[in-house]
Nucleic acid binder design. Structure first.
Lengths: 195, 195
DNA sequence: TCTTTTTCGGACCATTTAATCAAGAAATGA
DNA sequence: TCATTTCTTGATTAAATGGTCCGAAAAAGA
């Protein structure tokens, strides 16, 4: 019994990504936050806890969502190169989409807080190592399948590079509104896999 | 006549880079800032103006310093590949040095402010296009010198990629304290120039 | 000595901050 | 009907915010 929630908590979480992504964690005042979420102040505290709690929830939700997509693609049977290409094309597409683009920028705000919020630091560390390992395993499989030559040598380094490149694309997007630049970066990034 | 300044304004500017780099622009309270700079409040306002003025000065000073190094190397006669390799090795070295590393993180704080401080947005836009052009001209020269094959094709894309990679290394450094990871990323990044 | 400049520190300002408490209205299902 | 939950709003709190003003001490050169 009791009254139902009038807002979808994950929809509001996405809005939080946008707001925090635009203003940064410290740059987002409670007023700005509430205006962006479209809910009343008390609803925020009742549903998510403090401003920091909401921020952490938004960061985790965003990261998990993105990581899941990557992990799924990497586990997909068949060409590993094709899977990795898809992953990067998908990121570029998200960053070129007016609506989805805004959510991505919470990553930047989150990285700001790494030195100050232990929970976020620990979360990112775990996520990064999980993804690095997934990339590595996929690359090993690619090698076994004959998709990579000995030229690529250090697959561990290649895995780290790919995971880092994935993260860094949002930074590039924040610095330039030009879609072509993003495409250029992705293209050259993927050329690291060429034979 | 009159009393001399007791502090070196550029030394204090470097300290400002560290403080802003660590806490972010909004995350840096005036108190934190003054403690970090080691000067009195009034001295700050007399010398640099407001907190925002100081931030902008620090960002510009840092960026100009780094860009100058890059432009100088790219103009150096001889192997372009060697020059670019040097540029990235130098960045990695800075990010691995306990002291210099801290200053670099002001870049991250600066990018946060791009959507909110027009002066910073304009400054970065100019700086980026200048460097992209320098990379491009250098790559053209490299091609003419026989350092690059037709495989590399789109030199404009390659230039954008290199400039972006340069920026993004600080992000990688912020996410991991592991020097080896940085080296791995640089190694693979530079492999884009391999024949 | 005298004037100028800088340093330093405290006092002070209005504003904003995140967060809590309270209370009534609206909705929900037993 | 009744208990429960959420929504909305306003009041309030205590602390922190960036910035200004003032005055005295300390240099430095004329």
């Amino acid at each position: 019994m009791g009254r139902n929630k009038e807002f979808d908590t994950t929809v509001v979480l996405r809005k939080a990504m946008e707001v925090f992504g635009h203003y940064g964690y410290e740059g987002t005042s409670l007023q700005i936050l509430l205006d962006g979420l479209g809910i009343a102040r008390q609803s925020l505290y009742d549903t998510y806890g403090t401003k920091k709690d909401l921020f952490i929830s938004a960061v985790k939700h965003y990261t998990n969502e993105k990581s899941t997509v990557v992990l799924t693609r990497l586990d997909r049977p068949g060409s590993v190169k094709a899977a990795i290409t898809d992953i990067f094309r998908e990121i570029a597409a998200a960053l070129k989409d007016e609506a989805r683009r805004k959510e991505c920028f919470i990553m930047h705000s989150a990285i700001d807080q790494v030195p100050h919020v232990p929970e976020i630091a620990a979360f990112f560390e775990k996520d990064a190592s999980r993804l690095e390992e997934a990339f590595y395993q996929a690359l090993v499989r690619a090698y076994e399948q004959g998709e990579l030559s000995d030229r690529h040598g250090d697959l561990r380094a290649l895995a780290r590079y790919l995971n880092h490149s994935r993260y860094s694309l949002t930074q590039a997007a924040k610095l330039t509104p030009e879609p072509k630049v993003l495409d250029d970066i992705v293209k050259v990034t993927l050329s690291a896999l060429d034979s």
